[in-house]
Computed example of a mutant assay.
Amino acid sequence: MSDAEAKHVLGLSGGKDSAALAVYMRQHHPELDIDYFFTDTGKELPEVYEFLGRLEGFLGKSILRLNPDRDFDFWLKQYNNFLPSPQTRWCTRQLKLRPFEQWLKPMLEQGQKVYSYVAIRGDEEYREGYSSKHKNLKIVLPFKDDGIDKPGVHEILESSGLGLPKYYDWRSRSGCTFCFYQQKIEWVRLKEQHPEAFEEAKTYEKNAVENDSPFTWSQGESLDELTEPERVRQIKEDYEKRLERAKAKRQQNPLRDEPDSLDIDELYGQAKGCLACHK
């Protein structure tokens, strides 16, 4: 098939970078008929769905939902009730990448070339978000190529009228409500913002422990331990101290973002989250 018959796809996580890339491609490459897709695990934050709805309004196009044929609970049983973790990220593999591969498989087998646009920014080291051995699948990094950095992403979203997803008020990443890459302050805030989702995460954790899983959602302590009143106080105090230190550093450079716009991960060290979930 010719390049004119190529398929163009852009995956959305519900996060700011992929949303900004969708806006950027719509504004700078309107000639491309891009299929925007979101792989729904069914465990996403409600703010994610609200943001995707607003993004659809801007794009003037529906975002395809690639629902996995097996949900989180199915795969949890397949993995003997062992929770996913940074060491065994089966959730990303089975609930995000697998549906994407199944969607593209017929196109690639028919010889169609597919261009997949990924939101790696110009100020990030390139991390392989999705590598394919298939000769017809090409990964494209527009932000990397055009030098769009984090402030540039914010500017794109603000100028479009979308702004940031609402969960950025209390959390640094999209993805499942019980993502194991959350910082401890984010678990505390999840309990405050979405107590039902927090209780569901606790249930999964207790079942995993009963089945000899070596992992808890948050490294080094259970959610019960993490949300003891004294522990919550410690976590919040630690967060405030880190924020104050970051503010002091940011004030030395007026060209940087305002201190209050710091991502939580910047305060604790950048976590290597899964690109399919968090970009």
Rank of each mutant, 00 (worst) to 15 (best):
V232I: 15
R233N: 15
R233Q: 15
R233T: 15
R233E: 15
I235R: 07
K236D: 07
K236V: 13
D238K: 01
E240L: 02
E240R: 01
E240I: 01
K241A: 03
K241G: 02
K241N: 03
K241M: 05
K241R: 04
R242G: 00
R242V: 00
R242H: 01
L243Q: 06
L243W: 02
L243A: 07
E244H: 07
E244S: 04
R245M: 10
A246V: 06
A246P: 05
K247Y: 09
K247V: 05
K247T: 07
A248I: 07
A248M: 09
K249Q: 06
K249C: 00
K249E: 08
K249N: 03
Q251A: 03
Q252F: 02
Q252M: 06
N253S: 09
N253A: 06
P254H: 06
P254M: 04
D257Q: 14
D257A: 08
E258R: 12
D260I: 09
S261A: 12
S261G: 10
S261I: 09
L262H: 11
L262I: 14
D263K: 13
D263Y: 14
D265G: 06
D265Q: 10
E266T: 12
E266S: 12
E266F: 06
L267I: 11
Y268R: 11
G269Q: 12
G269N: 11
G269C: 11
Q270C: 12
Q270F: 14
A271G: 04
K272Y: 07
K272D: 08
K272C: 04
C274V: 03
C274A: 05
C274S: 05
L275N: 01
L275T: 02
A276T: 00
A276P: 00
A276Q: 00
A276S: 00
A276V: 00
